[in-house]
């Protein structure tokens, strides 16, 4: 409950910032929203399901490319259908990859997701029809002018992205409260017990991977609409690493932690990099300090400082 209250406060703060923000603030907020969704989807997999992936950015990038491809002249779907297509198309591919990848665990899972992710990166890097390494441009945004919202306006777009992130938080919190969520947590904590109960562990792990991939694909479709330009860089393992840092910095398996992580990392990245060329070292040092503190990220730290409950 504390965590949901924390999430409520955090989203309230982001919306409050939005009401005060100008152009550049809108850009930051949209970026935060995109990464918050992506990091939450990774938390579902890594924090709750115990499957730490270094290929998550590939699913994110896949969603971005699917959205752009489906909405382009090559296919010509309307934007709402392209968003659905991006999310569920990514989910289907994640299911296929997951069915294979979940057979291994721990460091092996990290490596196999890295392998699949890099193959995806290579596919888009080489694919001339999709722009190769120069990327795709001229991507359309969802048209909500029918209900009086102009998403080409940065403020409206940032607001829509924030609302999406808040809805994803609610959706994931709900999923975690369902029996499926209970099994997911059990997969991590005690897989043998689930096996003894007659549950097909691998099926559940694959399902979790596919669901997480669907949400990552959705994040990709928003990212493509935000920058209106995408490159294979989105799929690279270094992007996966950044998202993993967000999750860990915020607090693994807390759902609100990834949102905290996204806020902190996006802000740090932009503010530090205009001050010093060595911002990478500061971010890395920050990560080390958080790990050395032996708390579960910033959320763990906050929970410890709050009286009463301990996380």
């Amino acid at each position: 409950m504390t965590r949901h209250l924390l999430a409520l406060a955090l989203f309230a703060a982001l919306f409050a910032w939005h009401s005060q923000a100008e152009y550049y603030g809108f850009e930051l907020l949209a970026e935060i929203a995109v990464f918050a969704i992506l990091a939450m989807s990774l938390d579902l997999l890594a924090g709750y399901g115990g499957m730490v992936s270094l290929g998550h950015a590939a699913l994110f990038g896949l969603g971005a490319y699917l959205y752009s491809w489906l909405g382009s002249d090559m296919v010509g779907l309307s934007a709402p259908l392209a968003i659905l297509g991006a999310a569920f198309g990514t989910g289907v591919i994640a299911l296929a990859v997951g069915a294979v990848a979940v057979r291994v665990e721990g460091i092996f899972f990290i490596m196999i997701t890295l392998g699949f992710g890099q193959m995806g990166h290579e596919f888009f890097f080489q694919n001339k029809a999709l722009g190769g390494d120069d990327g795709l441009f001229g991507i359309q945004r969802l048209d909500l002018s029918g209900i009086g919202i102009d998403l080409s306006d940065p403020g409206s777009f940032a607001l829509a992205a924030l609302v999406s992130a808040a809805l994803v938080y609610v959706l994931l919190a709900w999923v975690l409260a369902t029996p499926f969520g209970a099994v997911l947590k059990g997969l991590h904590a005690n897989p043998n017990r689930l096996r003894a109960l007659g549950l097909r562990v691998l099926t559940y792990r694959a399902a979790a991977f596919a669901f997480s991939g669907t949400v990552a694909g959705f994040a990709g479709s928003i990212s493509a609409q935000h920058t209106q330009f995408i490159t294979p860089h989105l799929l690279n393992w270094t992007t996966s690493g950044e998202v993993l840092i967000m999750v860990i910095l915020g607090g693994l398996g807390t759902l609100v932690g990834p949102v905290v992580g996204a806020v902190v990392l996006v802000l740090l990245r932009h503010e530090l990099s205009s001050i010093t060329d060595y911002w990478g070292a500061i971010m890395g040092g920050f990560l080390i300090l958080v790990v050395l503190s032996r708390q579960n990220g910033l959320v763990g730290l906050v929970e410890r400082l709050l009286p009463g409950r301990r996380g």
Partner: peptide
């Protein structure tokens, strides 16, 4: 002179360019 780091990252650079121009 204002300066900022682009790395080799199109997404991050776009955000930084917007900051330079808009803010």
């Amino acid at each position: 002179m204002l300066r900022d780091d682009t790395e080799a990252n199109p997404g991050a650079t776009l955000a930084k360019a917007k900051k330079m121009v808009l803010a």
